[in-house]
Nucleic acid binder design. Structure first.
Lengths: 148, 148
DNA sequence: ACAAAAACCCAGTGGAGTGGTAGGATTAAG
DNA sequence: CTTAATCCTACCACTCCACTGGGTTTTTGT
C-alpha cells in the first residue's frame, strides 16, 4: 500500500510549479533544486503530466512549465492517476474496470466488497484536495514548526 | 497503491478459516484447495498471523488453524498490518510514526497533510470491516451473481 | 551566427521487492 | 510407526522502481 515516488514527486513538482509560475514558466532545474529531486527523473514525470493536460510547456531558453488549468481545478488524484495509473488497491477493484471483472469467482471474491470500499475511500481522499489547497497551506506554514 | 498478494491471500485465508473451523481446525491444504492458492505460500502467511495472535494452530495430523479471536473482533486492517506492515501510503505518514518524522522539511512536506488524510481514510476503511462482516456477506451471496 | 538553456525522447541499469518453490525438522493422531 | 499436519529456513526467477546518460530539438540572448 505504498505510493511510488512518481506520485509523490509529481505532487511536489506540481505544487512547486503552482507556487512559482507567477513570474513565468518554471524550469525543471529550478524545481529540482528547490525540492531536492533529480532533474532528469523529473523529466520523466513532466512528459506524462503534459500529455495528460495538466501542464503546459514552453521550450527553449527561459522556458519551463506552467499549470494548464488553475490550481483549484487540479486535484492530487488527477496527478496520481496520470503517474501511477488508475486507482486500484487490487486488480479486481480498479476505477476503470472493464466490462465485468471476475476473479475466479470462488469464495475469494468474498473480499471484493472490502477492496471496492477501500478504493472509494482512497479516491475520495485524493480527489478532495486540490493544488490550491496545498498552496494555501504552504503559505500559512511559512514559520514552519521545525521538527527536532 | 497496490496491495500485495500477501494481504489479499491473507484475507481470503482468514475468511476461509472463519467459515470452516466449526467442525475443527482447518488445514492449509484445505484452504489452498478451496481458494486456489499455493499451500507452501500460505504457510508463510500463517506464521506471522499466528505470532500476531490472530490464529491459533494445532500441530500434528488432523491439525490446522482456528481463529484466535471471534470473527467479529478481527478486522481486515488487523490482517493487512500483520502481513504488509504499518499502513503508510508514504513513509513520512506512517501509522506508527516514531518521535518526529521530518522529510527534509523543505516545501516537499507541503504534501504531508494529504498523505496523512489518505492514510486515515485507508485505516478507517480497513478497520471498519470485520471477518464476521465478510462471512455474513459470503453466506448471503450463495446464489452467486455469475459474471458472463 | 552561435552559445547557452531549456524541453523532449529513449534506452539502459542496479537493486530491492514480489511471489513463489524446495527441503527438511518437529509434533500429534490413528 | 506411518501419516498428516505445522513449522522453519533458504533460495530463486522475475518484475518493477528509481534513476542515469546520451542525444535531439527549440528558443533566447549576445
Amino acid at each position: 500500500m505504498k505510493l511510488s515516488t512518481k506520485g509523490r514527486y509529481g505532487v511536489m513538482a506540481m505544487v512547486d510549479v503552482a507556487m512559482n509560475s507567477d513570474v513565468g514558466p518554471v524550469s525543471l532545474k529550478a524545481v529540482a533544486e528547490r525540492q531536492g529531486l533529480s532533474e532528469s527523473y523529473l523529466e520523466q514525470l513532466a512528459g506524462p503530466l503534459r500529455k495528460a493536460g495538466l501542464l503546459n510547456s514552453v521550450r527553449g531558453a527561459q522556458g519551463g512549465y506552467t499549470l494548464a488549468r488553475e490550481a483549484g481545478a487540479i486535484t492530487v488524484g488527477d496527478i496520481i492517476r496520470v503517474l501511477e495509473g488508475p486507482i486500484a488497491p487490487v486488480d479486481c477493484a480498479s476505477e476503470d474496470e472493464g466490462p465485468v471483472q471476475h476473479c475466479a469467482h470462488s469464495q475469494g471474491c468474498v473480499a471484493k466488497s472490502v477492496w471496492v470500499k477501500l478504493r472509494d475511500s482512497i479516491v475520495r481522499a485524493l480527489d478532495s484536495v486540490s493544488l490550491a489547497d496545498l498552496c494555501e497551506e504552504a503559505k500559512h506554514d511559512d514559520g514552519y514548526p521545525l521538527p527536532l
